[in-house]
């Protein structure tokens, strides 16, 4: 095992897959030799693989994804970077109507093996256009897979699987996770989609969380353990496909669930998870389902405002205490 930062783990996945498969290439704004990606994920890759395979693009998000679709359906495996998750809005047609539907609409003739990597999340005071968490937009589009890694280990394993797969993958990253360190094996590994990870075992209450919120949940769980409340933290790792079995098994064991998600509450990730639990495990619940999410506002700039809207360990603890 070795210790590695989330951003470096992502870069290892890209590097290994580019070495393994000549059809894998990267495109995006400022990902090449002059900048190495706004969050430095692709740093050094242009030097190793050349500008042909690590392509700096114009500021044209719609065309970045459109070009990835075109390349993917004709034999390449593009990995596109959109500098900030908020900016995927500019490419929404290419993502939701083209990439996601091209196989189905053409009766299974085509496949679009492509990955769209982008960072979500707040916490760095860069306001409403650079801080959103929009995973739910993409969960709502059949034909896309949605990955949400919370650790370096998950990030590397899932990204390799995403690149090797034959479907378009919307690969969510998180700004605050890039510097986070964790252990990964020295040897090569991949992680399957649709397989949740129990990040902490517990028996009193299930806390379902993704990405940065997993770490908030783990901190909350640790603090609650000192009050003899045993929290199970479950991280789905991919939202589509979703490991329902693991989610339901945990809920059936604890009889209580708090769903934590950084996105807006209305029609967000937490709404979908709550619906599944209500539909398929309501008889096992000993308390109402609780949700901890963003309170349906844009993300404000000023630190006290942003801190107020983004879920944190204190809000998780409060929610847990309301139902145990």
């Amino acid at each position: 095992m070795k210790e590695i930062a989330y951003r470096d783990a992502l870069r290892e996945a890209l590097r290994e897959e580019m070495r393994r498969d000549q059809t894998v290439f990267l495109l995006g704004e400022d990902i090449g030799r002059f900048w190495g990606g706004a969050f430095k994920v692709t740093n050094g890759l242009a030097e190793e693989f050349g500008d042909e395979r690590v392509r700096d693009t114009p500021i044209s998000e719609s065309t970045i994804i459109g070009a990835a679709v075109g390349a993917a359906i004709t034999g390449m495996r593009p990995v596109a970077e959109i500098m900030f998750g908020d900016l995927t809005a500019l490419a929404m047609d290419q993502i939701a109507n083209q990439a996601a539907k091209i196989r189905y609409m053409f009766g299974g003739q085509a496949k679009a093996p492509m990955v769209i990597r982008t960072p979500f999340g707040g916490g760095v005071n860069i306001a409403s256009h650079h801080s959103q968490s929009l995973e739910a937009w993409f969960m709502h589009v059949p034909g896309l897979y949605v990955a949400v890694p919370s650790t370096p280990y998950d990030a590397k394993g899932l990204l390799k699987t995403a690149i090797r797969g034959d479907n378009p993958v919307f690969f969510c990253e998180h700004k605050l996770l890039y510097p986070l360190k964790g252990m990964i094996p020295e040897e090569e590994y991949t992680l399957p989609f649709g397989k949740a990870d129990v990040k902490r075992e517990g028996k009193d209450v299930t806390v379902f969380a993704t990405m940065f919120m997993v770490h908030q949940a783990l901190t909350a769980a640790e603090r609650l353990s000192r009050e003899n409340i045993s929290v199970e933290v479950i991280d789905p790792r991919t939202l589509v496909p979703l490991d329902k079995a693991a989610l339901l098994a945990s809920v059936k064991k604890t009889g209580r669930i708090v769903i934590v998600s950084e996105d807006c509450k209305t029609a967000g990730v937490s709404a979908e998870i709550a619906a599944i639990v209500a539909e398929e495990a309501i008889d096992y619940l000993d308390a109402p389902i609780k949700r901890v999410a963003e309170p349906d506002t844009p993300i404000p700039f000023s630190p006290p405002l942003e801190k107020f809207v983004i879920p944190d360990e204190n809000r998780i603890i409060k929610a847990v205490k309301e139902i145990v």
Partner: peptide, 10 residues
């Protein structure tokens, strides 16, 4: 100007 909601970029 924006009561702290916008910041430098807005």
């Amino acid at each position: 100007y924006c009561k702290g909601k916008g910041g430098s970029m807005h």
